[in-house]
Amino acid sequence: MTPTERDATLYGRLVAYEGRAAATAGVGKDPVNLPMIRHWCEAMGDAHPAYRGPEAVAPPTMLQAWTMGGLAGHTGRSSAYEELFALLDAAGYTSVVATDCEQEYLRPLRPGDEITFDTVIESVSRPKTTKLGPGYFVTTRTDVRAGAELAGTHRFRILKYAPASRPPKSPDQAPRRPRPVINRDNAGFWEGVAAHRLLIQRCGDCAALRFPWLPGCADCGSPEWDTVEASGAGTVFSYVVMHHPPFPAFAPPYAVGLIELAEGVRMISNVVGVPYDKVRIGMPVRLEFVRADEELELPVFRAGGEG
């Protein structure tokens, strides 16, 4: 299986856990108590008077703390939750980081309150590429009760990810741009680039121009073709600004343009010679070739050049 197929298979297995219980009638390890409240306030530097004295309530933001497993770990988690994590661990997604926490507080928690909670696995994301590494977001929703009374709700999202290896720092090992995949269908394009000519395919039967290079004509189906050389003039048809995630050899933010060539076909490329936030639709651009490294040259488009 390819990595993409593996991800699709894994996602199919993960998504089956949506809606299943992650904890049923979980019990807080300690009842709400003043020492834990005081330790929390000390750590946070929180001097709110409501959290002190004989009438003290717990800081509402402690909601999740009362449900934590602590050093000894969780008890009362469902097998569904353990299975979901085991699947991710086995696939190499071994690390966890929390990304979102949404809490609503319905009733104050007071010393002596016994905590119980129920957690459901609300959703599992498709595979995502993040700065930390590839992974899956898992969202749970927990109802926290004091005795029989609902005290608060807690939606929590974590990223379960495979730690990305740190890129090498030495300049001779600086990350390089990805290599193009060159095959019989597009070799002529890259031969053109090597000769500083941007070649567009032209159907041998109906004369329709096409880009990127393909074995047959999308208009009439003919496999016959020749090429025409682009004049190099074009305009920005559309663009996006890439902020995240960062990829090796690319320093965000940068603009990725969809360039409409004077000949009428469009191609995706970098827009250079203008800050990323100054790229605009309709902006005239002019073809040039940049050498990315000793093996790779790329066609890019410089802003502002009409001639």
Partner: peptide, 15 residues
């Protein structure tokens, strides 16, 4: 951890 951030945000508001 996210719980500490949550606590600090809560403190900022009630302060």
């Amino acid at each position: 951890n996210i719980l500490t951030t949550n606590g600090l945000v809560g403190r900022y508001i009630t302060d």
